[in-house]
């Protein structure tokens, strides 16, 4: 897990003087390589797929105004659905690849899939972050990977939420590919389990909104953290290196 303190060795009480000295002797910025190339690639492919899926998905549920002329002259809904399915496949393959990468990547690559509720330090960081977001704490902690609050969101929306969308998505897709198709064999059981096709459509739709909420919060907090926290955000997921703005412990 991401550790809360980078220079954990230094006792917090003695921090004031060495920092002042460090600053006096020129600014030293600690940089850690956090997000390896596959993780970055996945992030942006995933983000793009989600945008495409949300837009096309919305227009499958609420189609454009009717087109005039012969049906043979258009294939609008067909195209929208095709793009949705293609993006869905890309998202699903990316998700699988991301899971596989968690076995090979650095320790931060596994962070997404863990929710270390048994760790005291996790909950400490979690509540400090909540206080930071509630303006009750003037300064947040430092984190190499995700902060615990972000990790909770990531785990429940990006791992469990995306898994739910992939499973329900393929279950709905199997309605078109028909009984006996691999989609039906792997995911068809979901339809009766969740109360039928109509219900699964609605849940899949609600899932979209949960992800949209996540995206709003994610983009906002990333920008905010990039400006106000003690480490970089946007550049970290672009070039993989996270830079810290100070060398204070804690």
């Amino acid at each position: 897990m991401s550790d809360t303190s980078l220079s954990g060795a230094a006792p917090p009480a003695a921090s004031a003087t060495p920092v002042a000295q460090a600053i006096k002797g020129g600014r030293k910025l600690t940089t850690v390589y956090v997000y390896e190339a596959p993780v970055r690639l996945w992030h942006w492919v995933n983000a793009l797929s989600i945008v495409v899926l949300c837009i096309t998905g919305y227009f499958i549920g609420s189609p454009f105004p009717t087109l005039s002329g012969e049906a043979s002259a258009h294939y609008l809904m067909g195209t929208i659905r095709f793009v949705h399915f293609a993006a869905g496949y890309i998202l699903a393959v990316g998700f699988l690849g991301r899971i596989i990468w968690a076995f090979f990547g650095n320790k931060y690559s596994r962070e997404l899939f863990t929710f270390p509720f048994w760790r005291k330090s996790f909950w400490r960081g979690f509540f400090v972050e909540i206080k930071w977001y509630a303006f009750l704490k003037p300064r947040p902690l430092k984190f190499v990977g995700h902060n615990p609050l972000a990790q909770v969101f990531m785990f429940f929306v990006m791992v469990l939420g995306l898994a739910f969308m992939i499973v329900t998505g393929f279950a709905l897709y199997s309605e078109g590919t028909g009984p006996g198709s691999w989609q039906d064999k792997l995911f068809g059981w979901v339809l009766p389990l969740l109360g039928g096709s109509m219900q699964v459509h609605t849940l899949h739709h609600l899932g979209m909104w949960v992800i949209i909420l996540f995206v709003i919060i994610h983009v906002y907090s990333v920008i905010r953290e990039d400006i106000m926290s003690r480490q970089t955000m946007v550049s970290a997921i672009t070039n993989g290196h996270r830079t810290f703005r100070d060398d204070d412990p804690e």
Binding site: P63, A71, H74, M77, G78, G176
Partner: peptide, 16 residues
């Protein structure tokens, strides 16, 4: 899947 109005669905032609 077997509706005779399916081409209108794919084309994007709907009863509003």
């Amino acid at each position: 899947d077997k509706c005779y109005r399916r081409p209108h669905f794919d084309a994007g032609q709907y009863v509003e």
